[in-house]
Amino acid sequence: MGAFADFPVLIRSKWVYFWVMIKTDSLQITTDILSLIAEIDEFKGAWRALGTLAPERLSALRRVATIESIGSSTRIEGSKLSDREVERLLSNLQIKSFETRDEQEVAGYAETMELVFQSWADITITENHIKQLHRDLLKYSSKDNHHRGQYKTTSNSVAAFDEDGRQIGIVFETATPFDTPRLIEELVAFVNEAVETKRLHPLLIVGFFVVIFLEIHPFQDGNGRLSRILTTLLLLRVGYAYVPYSSLESVIEQSKEGYYLALRQTQGTIRTEAPNWQPWITFFLRALQQQMKRLAKKVEREKIVLSALPEISVQILEYAREHGRVTIGDIATLTGVNRNTLKKHLSQLVEKGHLVLHGSGRGAWYALA
């Protein structure tokens, strides 16, 4: 067993395959990987200081990130809804009935993400919870009624799509339906054992989980979206509390070719004697780095903007972030300030590039630039 000679005897033999697969010497810990992990962990440690914005402003950041995440994650799988369309749809989630498949997928993703944000501490990594999250994800998808929350019964493969939603090729073949329950059981055991024993860095554990989960592709549909939700859940559970405030899905969407390439390069080797984890782990850590950098910039910009603007202007921006749009009537009702005064503040915010004016006259409204 080599590097595994000192592993606790409590590791049952049925899990040994996954432990051996991810043995220390199968991943070259390069200076690049070490540097990425150190940078991300430094931000994780500094988040308490960076995240000292008022609760309503953190809420606004999370709202924007959530919209970006939902839009990006569903577009990666072929949806055509823009972030603005996603935002409008989320404002009417109480409808509970959606005409198109894109809308159904967005609604399911939104509710599942919110469940993770609210209850991550109680959602342990178990097969039942994974199945439940899959069921919730496809809650509104009428064509998926027969298989949501259940492992696949027919073979599937991972396809890549272009920006118009057209399939451009098969990325890789996946596990058979027969092997899927056993492989997921092993994967869940690996993750929980690795987190408990701390023999691997948490970011590596999450990275390994995601790439193996997608290589198995346990469900008939929704695996990509679910993998990204599970990524957020795992990151929250291992202490990366800032992830709801910056969209990892958006980073992946903008690096989609690299995403598919890294998956293909690693997943084609997972079941071999010498799995090549390098492409995926490097891509994954760089995506986390970009997610972190985007959030750091947003927080810094928020602080600069707040320190330089009058209180009324700050209230206008807060309302726009919270509701997606703002009118003079909205702010007049909120603040009781004279409408002419509000017009001056709105004009200044437009001139400074904080807001964009839409429409004119009585129908005019403003949105964040």
Rank of each mutant, 00 (worst) to 15 (best):
S79M: 02
T341I: 14
R225L: 04
N223Q: 06
R225W: 04
A332N: 13
S35M: 05
E114F: 10
R325W: 11
Q104I: 03
K293H: 10
R84S: 10
L200T: 01
A159P: 04
Y319W: 14
A189F: 03
R182T: 13
V210T: 11
R166E: 10
A107I: 06
L89V: 09
L183E: 12
L248S: 05
N223M: 02
D32G: 00
Y259P: 07
M113F: 11
W277V: 01
T52H: 05
K198A: 08
S141G: 05
I252V: 15
K293P: 00
L226Y: 02
H134Y: 03
N338L: 05
G2F: 15
Y260W: 11
I95E: 10
Q94C: 06
L10S: 08
L50Q: 04
A38E: 06
I331T: 10
S13Q: 10
W15Q: 09
Y17P: 10
R286F: 08
N223H: 05
Y140F: 14
E302I: 12
R294H: 12
K352D: 10
E185Y: 06
A121G: 06
L203S: 01
A3F: 12
K143R: 13
T333H: 08
A110M: 05
W15P: 00
G363A: 06
G324L: 11
R135A: 08
G169A: 08
R294I: 12
A121E: 14
H354Q: 13
Q28A: 07
L137K: 06
I205T: 09
L27A: 03
Y242T: 07
R12T: 11
S307Q: 09
E114V: 12
Q220H: 06
V106L: 07
Q291P: 06
M1P: 12
P310K: 11
A38L: 02
E114N: 13
W120E: 00
L309S: 07
T327H: 04
S79I: 03
A194G: 01
I229N: 01
L295S: 02
Q94E: 14
A5K: 15
L306A: 08
S227H: 07
T333W: 05
T272D: 02
E103N: 03
A241V: 14
D221L: 03
T176R: 11
T269P: 04
M1R: 12
S119K: 15
Q315R: 14
S250A: 15
N338Y: 09
E322K: 15
P202W: 01
E193P: 01
I270W: 02
E257M: 11
I70K: 04
K344I: 14
F172P: 01
R88D: 15
R339K: 14
T74R: 08
A287C: 09
R321C: 08
I22Y: 05
N338G: 05
V116A: 00
I40G: 02
F4C: 07
L334D: 02
I76P: 06
Y242G: 02
I11L: 07
G268V: 12
L334I: 09
Y240F: 15
E39K: 10
L342A: 00
V206E: 01
L200H: 10
E127P: 01
S26K: 15
R148F: 01
G222Q: 03
I76Y: 10
G353S: 07
S360T: 04
S313K: 03
L89A: 08
